[in-house]
């Protein structure tokens, strides 16, 4: 049996104690799994990722990480905190949140330096990760000078430089052009082949077959309504439509209007 990375049971969380964000979530993640979290806006995907990263804690229910309870108290223990943070990396949805240092170089090296890598090792890792993302020329730039695609790449590099076992990604392809998006998918699969666990929250139904073995679907009631392999889920257009994951698409063929559900990834349909 594979090592359990995360185990959530009946997890509930509300912002300010009154705006529910997660209502009874059960999820189990094993080592090396690729998981996609999909759902409409405001369905709780980002909240779940923050919870898995130990940034917020449930109002009720239990969260276990690597077999141990993940709580504020547990993270107060320096050793547990260090081990957990070292093993789990989160790429935030908004790169401006994540890029808080004055330059790209400081930003990317922040993780290794704060995890106690010496400067020499951090600098070596920095050169390597910048090469992976092809952003060596951005090293001296300030984050506010970057495009959204560049910001995303820097955010990813800033997390991946620490080589975490578990990668949590919040809408990693949002705002990216198709080529950059493609490169990102390839990179995630490369990390998966190296044995990493990858959990991705996304709206991008194009990519879920490539980045996930199992897809968890959140509905508007902020709980998981279905967990299924991507192919099975994508075939169920009625279910996807009910959960705002595909939409009715209208276009013209030979001058005649034509309406059908707009699904992904193939976008093929018969007439």
């Amino acid at each position: 049996m594979n090592e359990k990375i995360f185990e959530l049971k009946d997890v509930r969380f509300a912002y300010l104690g009154k705006y529910p964000a997660l209502c009874g979530v059960d999820i189990s993640v094993e080592k090396g799994q690729r998981i996609a979290l999909v759902g409409a806006n405001g369905s709780g995907k980002s909240t779940l990722l923050h919870l898995l990263d130990g940034l917020i804690f449930p109002d009720s229910g239990s969260v276990k990480a690597f077999g141990a309870e993940l709580s504020e108290g547990a993270l107060a223990d320096a050793q547990f905190n260090y081990d957990f943070r070292r093993r789990v990396g989160l790429v935030f949805q908004n790169p401006d949140v994540q890029l808080f240092c004055p330059t790209v170089k400081e930003e990317v090296m922040f993780g290794p330096l704060n995890f106690g890598s010496g400067y020499e090792k951090a600098a070596k890792d920095f050169d390597a990760i910048m090469k992976v993302f092809g952003i060596e020329d951005l090293a001296g730039r300030m984050p506010h000078q970057l495009s959204i695609g560049e910001k995303r790449k820097v955010s990813m590099a800033a997390v991946l430089i620490s080589n975490p076992d578990v990668l949590l990604l919040d809408e990693p392809t949002a705002g990216l052009d198709p080529r950059t998006s493609r490169g990102l998918v390839d990179l995630l699969n490369k990390y998966h082949r190296e044995g990493k666990t990858v959990i991705t929250a996304t709206h991008d139904m194009h990519i879920i077959e490539e980045i996930a073995d199992i897809v968890y679907v959140f509905n508007h009631d902020k709980h998981i309504v279905r967990a299924a392999p991507p192919a099975e889920l994508l075939a169920d257009t009625g279910f996807l439509q009910d959960n705002n994951l595909i939409h009715i698409h209208s276009h013209r063929h030979d001058g005649k209007p034509h309406v059908h559900p707009h699904g992904h990834p193939s976008h093929d349909h018969t007439h």
Binding site: H50, L55, G89, F92, V97, F100, E106, L113, S162
Partner: peptide, 23 residues
């Protein structure tokens, strides 16, 4: 933003004493 940035710092190993590079 303040809360979110603090979360991002914690997530990347910040423990109250920042280590920043000066090369």
């Amino acid at each position: 933003l303040n809360e979110a940035v603090y979360g991002a710092m914690l997530s990347r190993g910040y423990r109250g004493e920042p280590v920043i590079s000066h090369d």
